[in-house]
Design a protein around this nucleic acid. Structure first.
Length: 153
DNA sequence: GCCAACGTTGGC
DNA sequence: GCCAACGTTGGC
């Protein structure tokens, strides 16, 4: 079992949308970055735990936790000519982009702000703080447990 | 809305 | 395979 952080823009699809989805389960799709794709395709598996991170919004930070509930599969949006992210280089037998389904586990009472994460020395090596522009990224077990502590406090 | 950082593209 | 130009991400 692995820990992850998935970024999303809540104005497009946030934790409230996940909470409102049937079975509080939704497809995590439209990932169009190779590094993120590789994690999704090769490493993300059912049962993995995910921090849901809100970016490009008023309250930037971790909004809750979800669980991966499917194997990775080809993101259907790449095959849809009417979709903005339609990919001419993708074919049904040769997908380029992948997605998984996630189910909400916990919606935090308050978003845990990025600013707060930055103040914790134990989190200084987080990919989130080290590397920008990666929408699917691994989280170390120590980091995960540290963040759990911040939520509880 | 600004702008820095970073990924991607494409000419050579 | 280098690297400049360009586009996107994402915090502020």
């Amino acid at each position: 079992m692995h820990y992850w952080l998935f970024k999303t823009e809540p104005d497009v699809f946030g934790i409230d949308d996940l909470a409102a989805a049937p079975g509080q389960t939704a497809r995590w799709d439209e990932i169009r970055n190779f590094q993120a794709r590789n994690f999704l395709r090769d490493r993300v598996r059912p049962g993995d735990q995910v921090l849901i991170y809100h970016s490009s919004c008023r309250q930037v930070g971790v909004a809750g936790i979800a669980e991966v509930v499917s194997e990775p599969y080809a993101d259907p949006s790449q095959f849809d000519p009417d979709h903005p992210l339609f990919d001419t280089k993708a074919a049904p037998g040769a997908p380029r982009w992948y997605c998984v389904d996630v189910r909400l586990s916990q919606r935090f009472a308050r978003v845990l702000p990025l600013k707060a994460l930055k103040q914790v020395p134990e989190l200084s090596e987080m990919v989130l703080l080290r590397q920008g522009r990666l929408s699917v990224q691994p989280v170390r077990a120590e980091e995960w447990h540290c963040i759990q502590g911040l939520v509880a406090s």
